[in-house]
């Protein structure tokens, strides 16, 4: 029951993500510092700037995104307007449109609004990674392995897990949350702070527990960036089992990948 409910929730939220414009008027109320200018205002505003100025501002936004993306912390619209867009704020939608186009056509990246309420954006890779054929043999970030394990357990356990399950799982993998790990340092901080700020994970208190307990869910970034189908494939490979044998997870992964494929194809 709860799982089915959650599934429909994520679906509806992913739908709202794909059509942020339809829900904008309601959510604008939360953003007191900035109100999205109307199309006519943008048109008027564009007349004030030369095309070169607009291009320059767009380039600045692109660079801001790229630098922010180094640490995988989502870009907040409020920060973007305050630090980069500044006096160009009345043509903000146009600048964002152009920046998104640059990411799409030049970098092969896609700009996604992961939080329609707080207006947060991330970049994801549009290109599929080909197995074993990484053009640049860049050293893997071991933290991604840690994150991957946590996301896998959450997904396979139906979307929500108590933090104890995660800590116990990691302990079995020789990673103790209470000790300093040679690769990850303060594991607890990496998991409950860094991954949460990057929006890979959600870490929340479980109501009515004594002593206080927390639970993990997938964060908004994980929902758009991580492929459930591929996680399931890897699980099958590990367990030497058909991915379809986890019926529920398989169904969820399949529904998700269909919807994301649809959204990416519509972009093209």
């Amino acid at each position: 029951m709860t799982q089915r409910k959650r599934l429909s929730n994520t679906q509806s939220s992913s739908q709202s993500k794909r059509q942020p414009s339809s829900s904008v008027p309601l959510e604008e109320e939360d953003d007191s510092t900035f109100t999205q200018p109307s199309t006519s205002q943008v048109q008027k505003g564009l007349e004030k700037f030369t095309p070169a100025q607009v291009d320059q501002k767009t380039a600045e936004v692109v660079q801001f995104f790229l630098v922010r993306d180094q640490k995988k912390i989502p870009v907040r619209r409020a920060d973007l307007v305050k630090h980069v867009v500044k006096e160009y704020r009345n043509i903000y939608p146009e600048i964002m449109k152009r920046a998104a186009r640059t990411f799409d056509q030049v970098f092969g990246l896609k700009m996604v609004e992961i939080d329609a309420k707080n207006h947060m954006y991330i970049l994801i890779n549009k290109l599929e990674t080909v197995q074993g054929a990484s053009p640049v043999n860049s050293p893997a970030n071991p933290k991604m392995g840690l994150l991957f394990v946590i996301l896998s357990v959450i997904f396979m356990k139906g979307g929500v897990v108590r933090e104890n399950l995660i800590w116990n799982t990691l302990r079995k993998l020789r990673v103790d949350a209470g000790e300093k790990h040679e690769e990850f340092g303060d594991v607890k901080k990496v998991v409950t702070d860094e991954f949460v700020r990057q929006r890979y994970l959600e870490y929340g208190r479980i109501p009515h527990t004594e002593p206080i307990e927390h639970e993990f869910r997938w964060g908004q970034r994980a929902e758009v960036e991580v492929s459930k189908t591929k996680i399931l494939e890897f699980m099958g490979q590990l367990h030497e089992q058909d991915p379809e044998s986890w019926t529920q997870q398989y169904r969820e992964a399949h529904a998700m990948s269909n919807s994301t494929q649809a959204s990416t194809s519509s972009q093209r």
């Binding site: 995988k72 071991p142 392995g145 394990v149 991580v226």
Partner: peptide, 18 residues
Amino acid sequence: WHRVAKRAEGCFRASPSF
């Protein structure tokens, strides 16, 4: 953990950091 990360890369559509 590098091995896991390497394998996990395929599951992430993470943008390569600049």
